[in-house]
Structures are given as structure tokens and as C-alpha cells.
Simulated assay, not measured.
Amino acid sequence: MLPQQIDETPDDTLIVCCCTARDERCTLVPMLIMIVGLVFMVVGFAVPRGYDFDPNKPAREMEATENFYITLGYHLDICITVGMGFIALGGMIVSTLMLQEAFCNNEDDDESFSEYLNLANYSNYGTSVTNDHAPNIQNSR
């Protein structure tokens, strides 16, 4: 655009945003992923892993029971790890969506942003730099 065309166009057309309007249902998917991960973790911790040793049973039967509980504990550990992964994945997606919304927020106009960056508004407490806007104070010795 030429500078003459910028002066002729309304202010609404100057705002260019790379972000599209986000539907609130977009946060539902990562929340469901986190809930699924939580369910996996609860199942992994809630299922009992121990067994009662019975000396009256034959050795082969007790060995089979022991092998079953070893395999069960292994699968429950995998279930807990997958649950943690789902919770982490859902959290990363939610945080990405929140960051996208924070960076694409166009509520601030150029004037308020320039006022925010105006260095004359900052305090120079404890420095030797003088502020031109501050009242002149004479040394009274």
C-alpha cells in the first residue's frame, strides 16, 4: 500500500492478524485427552498388584500366579506411563492454545502501546540518569 492509500483506508482494514477466531470447543479435545490420561493413571494405581502366598498350593500353580502378577504389574506400569503422557500432551496443547490467544490479542491499539513503551514514565530511582520531566531540585547546603 502506498502512504496515500493508507490515509484513505479506514482503521479497521489496517489491522492484520495471522490468527483466526478460535472456537471454544477447541479446548475440549485437550481436556478430554487429559481426562483419559487421568483415568489411565487411576486404573494403574487402583488395581492391586500383590497376591497372597499359599503354602498349601503346588509349586507350579504358585509360580503361574506369581508370573501372572509380575506381568500384571508390568502392564500397570505401562498404563501409568501412558496416562502421564496423555496428561502432558493435553497440557501442552492447552498451553499452546492459550499462548496463541495471548499473542494474537489485538485489543491494544498503537497509542496505548506507545504509552506503555514511553521511557519517560519509568522511574530512575537509584540511578544517576536525570529525568527531563522531573522537577529540578536544588541542593540546599
Rank of each mutant, 00 (worst) to 15 (best):
F53P: 00
T96P: 00
L28K: 12
N105E: 08
D108G: 01
Q5W: 06
G83D: 08
V82W: 03
I6N: 05
C18F: 11
T20N: 14
Q100F: 02
D108A: 12
Q5H: 12
N105P: 01
T71L: 06
F68G: 01
L97T: 00
I70T: 12
L14E: 12
I35N: 09
L28Q: 14
L38M: 12
G44N: 07
T9F: 05
I35H: 08
T96Y: 13
R60M: 09
C104T: 04
A102H: 06
G50T: 10
Y69P: 06
I6Y: 06
M31W: 09
E107G: 07
E107W: 03
V47C: 07
I78H: 05
T13Y: 13
Q100V: 04
L32H: 11
I78E: 07
A88S: 09
M1H: 11
Q5D: 15
G37S: 06
C79R: 06
E111D: 13
A21L: 04
V43S: 05
F86M: 14
D110P: 00
E63G: 03
A88T: 06
N106C: 15
Q4P: 00
A88N: 04
D23V: 00
Q5A: 09
G85A: 14
C18I: 07
L38E: 03
I80P: 00
D11Y: 03
I6S: 08
D23T: 02
D77M: 08
M31D: 09
Q4I: 03
I87C: 12
L89N: 02
D52G: 01
A88D: 03
D7T: 06
T65D: 13
I93E: 14
T27R: 13
V36F: 12
T9N: 10
K57Y: 07
S114Y: 10
C26P: 00
L38Q: 06
I15E: 15
R49Q: 13
G37Y: 07
F113M: 15
N106G: 05
